[in-house]
Design a protein around this nucleic acid. Sequence first.
DNA 1: CGCGTTTGACCCGCGC
DNA 2: GCGCGGGTCAAACGCG
Length: 748
Amino acid sequence: MGSPSGGVVEKEEENRFDSMPMTTAVVQKQSGSSGRVDMVRKIDLSLKLAEDSDDKDEEMESDEHELNTQTRLDHQMCSVEDTGANNHPVQIQVSQQHSDDGYAFTCEVKGCGSEVRERDHLVVDSLTQRDKTGSDRSTVDNESPPPSPVGLPASAASKLKDELIAARTEITRLRQENDRFRSVLMHLTMEHHNLQMLVVASMQRHSDSTIYPVQSLLTQDASSTPAAHGALTSRNSDRENLRAGSPLKSTVHVKIAKHMGLVHALNSQVPKVEVTTRSRPRTGSASPERSTSPTESLQGCPPMLHPPSPAEESDQPRKRASEPTEHKANKSMKLAQNGAPSDVPVTQVEGDSNFRKARVSVRTRSDASTINDGCQWRKYGQKMAKGNPCPRAYYRCTVMSGCPVRKQVQRCAKDTSILVSTYEGTHNHPLSTAAAAMASTTSAAASMFLAGSTSCDMTFMTSAPQFMQMAGSQGPNPAAVPTNTASASFPSITLDLTNGPMNQLGLRLTNSSGSTTTNLQHLQGVITNGVVTSQRGSQQQFMTVPKQPATGNTPMFLMNGTAGAAVVTNCAPLSNLGSAFSPAGTLSNQFMQHHPSVESSSGVFSKHPAGPQTQALQPSLAESVTAATAMITSDPKFTAALAAAITSIIGQQNQNSRNQFSQVVGNQTRQGQQNASSPPSAFTTVAPSGSVVSPHSSAAPGEAALSTVLKSALMSLTKDQPANGLFNSVKPTPGHGFVVAAVPNRRP
DNA sequence: CGCGTTTGACCCGCGC
DNA sequence: GCGCGGGTCAAACGCG
Ligand SMILES: [Zn+2]
């Protein structure tokens, strides 16, 4: 029964103490601001003893509840009273917040009026019912060892109680302070999150105005070109400010956000977000890589003129002195991955290392050695990968000299009929429409994935049942998990076009390591023919979509062979929201016409463009997708959850967002501009639901798909869903990341 | 001869 | 620091 002389009550001792009728607890006040939370916890645990466990509802775990200070004080006073330790009701007034040797309080009781000063060490002895006669044997101890539990004079008991009260008050105060810190932290994080969204939004705005003027017109009010220019300006000044080390005026973004209708959502998420310049550096420096990324300072500079990134620097000692220029260029490309040829302005240059490392794997069933994705590839290496008897082939894009895009092709170890093509990088040249689809797919998918993999804001994502699952665990379809695909150390997304029934398509996102996060992430969804399903354990929830004719056994991914992949890829399970299949469905055909190249039944990308049968199939699929889109978007819960998830994803992608879609290659309508200065398009975050994506978007299906997803989701969010219910907790899964889930809870 | 593939060597990052 | 594995290079080779 001896008091823990060390002073600190460890948590593991809690139970032991609770079971004791009489305990001695030592509360040690820690000095310094650090460890404050711990201090609170410890004090709390200790006092629980004294309170004889009738205060259990006030554990730290419950500190989410808003607790009025006075309420807590009163409660604690009652608690004290209940113990019988006091002869009078106690009222405490915090007379001084802080002093050098503790906190001072005044007991405002008739006749009491004593001042209590918290000591560094407070020993509470026997505050149980043991002695109700007022002879509590409590001792205040500051330096001396714990006293023996002998009877004490009433004055001592009173003093002790005062001290106890003081301690409780202090606890309360600390709790509140802790809550305050938490709140501040939360707000800052949300602020960061929101700013990220704003950045993305503004960039999307810029993209929309410059690339998709029609869409700008469609995106209500503020979407006028000036606003877009404002976004652009802000972005540029953003960079300049960052470069100059001056914080960005966030008001610009706020304005933009208003224009984009984001403010509501933001405000509802963060009731009192003060968009201050302070947070801007946070955004800018959220990722260490970002600050070191050459991207930041590359505007207008040819990639080769970049100040070398650390990687580049480390690569310089490399001794292949007599490399052909092409290889040098390639090497540089590899490092700057998205580096454009010197004649290509820099907006194309994406220095973000994450994006650089992002990979998109496409699993297809094919007997061919490689899939025809419309690009020209040159094999530059082959290796036996560990754990796979099949060799891995390395290809480099040869459409244009210096194109940084690489591809790895390897057969799945478990199923050699499955060909896994892993794409990395973004083309810096125009592509054929067929290639553009895949390119945009991979680019957008990588961006999307990286966006979700870069940081911390998962905690603000929805925790609704899983429509999306992000965790280290494998989904219900482990077979689709890349079997040690080339990217054990790269964030990767795998588009499984081989799954299960031929009309299912799965999307799997995996982050094997992620340079900026340890969270393994997993996003999976399945779109079945006309049915959007999501799995939760064995339970499967789905929304039915009007049955589509003619698709029959036609695999969904038939259309994925080229353009369709972009849609399904980027959005699955949201895929059906693909912009190419706008809610109005007006773009479907156009989209299809842009991507006529598909194979019929095997899921293999066709080598023969414009297969007639696929032409026939596509519209129905488009309708299906459109219907699914409408269905999904009509479900507020689903869209809310979706919006939350996507928002989170996008919110985290600011580090990648500047240009991540800028190289949606093969965008016919953007080629010229792309080479000139392909602006980051990121996502269009808000648009009137039902607004039709600009026809131009058909050339960038993946990007536009995400855009539309966001539009729908966010519109739904802002319209139907108070964001409060959206951003709940996310349960960290032991070991890896979080489980983030969203699912429509009701059927439309 | 030009182009693409093959293939062994090399480089580099990472984990131990 | 070392070994391993992934990724790349580039000479050698093959083919049209
Ligand atoms: Zn290329």
